[in-house]
Design a protein around this nucleic acid. Structure first.
Lengths: 185, 185
DNA sequence: ACAGGTGAGTCAAGCTGCTTTACTTGCCCC
DNA sequence: GGGGCAAGTAAAGCAGCTTGACTCACCTGT
């Protein structure tokens, strides 16, 4: 999967700051623009940094061609499985898109389509052992990444952050079920 | 821009719970799954809910075909402008993609390409009045959305959330400049 | 002065992952 | 037993990015 003309990484130089001349800035952090950035973008940056680190490590762990959306699908299907339409709803995409994702995962041995117990035209999509194995690995990696991030922070616990986020989400999405986490913006 | 087969919205039913059998759950909120959701996904959900509300209102305000990436570009270009390569770097995409975005915005009258003062083959991309006008509108809308979200939360101030996020981002992206906010995951 | 190198910009083609349109099929129900 | 509904699927379209290959302006060294 070579990327010859890599999207510029905004992180090329190793120069840590630029104005870190000793004695010019008393105590507060250097030229930090973050406090001026809107909450929405802070959320986006944190999300993408975390997710990027996660998917990078998952790829290294032997799953180079499993995108985040596949992991989301696994989480939805874990347990009793689901139909592709239910999957579509949880993923926030059309049922055709969900069907394509299921096709893909089926071809690669991560899911199986079974006759649905409730009958009808429905088919129950369930995870194979390979998928459960992946879920275990990915879960461990995700918790590692989050734990490392927490350690890198001053506060030793990200629990308050979590509860504040939960409140924010409930305020924006009052109806009970989890909001979908869509594959694009 | 009709969406005949709308991506299912994960919010169809109004049924609040499903397992709200009286007497099974003592005092805490109903079947709230959020506490079990990983931090990374909480961030993603909050981000997408906020951004979705924002872009919806921006569209209603007369900018139906300006995507989030365009707003990001405007923010980068605001002030002294930038070259497309610099824009590419801040957006985390290839310079060709940045060039296409600039083409598009130029065609629609939001930016202009000027000869770059530093000469060379460089061109300075600067915002037109239309873009500055949009920035004013979008900025107001974004702050409205965030303020409403804050009001919907118990805590009357999202400042602590902001600082925790800033710390988290710095932990994940130690080098000074802002991390790019890429248009996809 | 001129060969080589470098970096910005751009043209053209390709591809991925989603949507749109349109259809088939099983079941329920009066 | 036909009408309606919901699940699934097939095929085409398309937006928005990447890859590849090139041009052009400037700088450098010898």
């Amino acid at each position: 999967m070579p990327r010859n003309q890599e999207p510029t990484n905004a992180n090329s130089g190793t120069e840590t700051s630029g104005n870190n001349v000793p004695g010019t800035e008393p105590t507060p952090p250097p030229n930090d623009q973050l406090p001026n950035v809107e909450l929405t973008f802070l959320l986006g940056m944190a999300f993408q940094l975390l997710l990027g680190e996660f998917t990078g490590r998952v790829a290294e762990a032997g799953y180079p061609d499993l995108r985040p959306v596949h992991g989301m699908a696994f989480q939805v299907l874990r347990g009793h499985g689901a139909t592709s339409s239910e999957l579509a709803e949880r993923l926030g995409v059309t049922k055709q898109a969900a069907g394509q994702i299921v096709d893909d995962l089926e071809k690669r041995g991560y899911v199986r389509r079974q006759p649905h117990p409730a009958g009808g035209r429905r088919k129950l999509v369930v995870l194979t052992d390979a998928a459960h194995q992946h879920l275990a690995v990915a879960g461990r990696i995700l918790h590692d990444v989050e734990a490392e991030a927490a350690r890198g922070t001053d506060q030793q616990d990200l629990a308050p952050l979590r509860t504040e986020l939960a409140h924010l989400i409930r305020a924006l999405h009052p109806n009970a079920p989890l909001p979908p986490l869509r594959p694009v913006w």
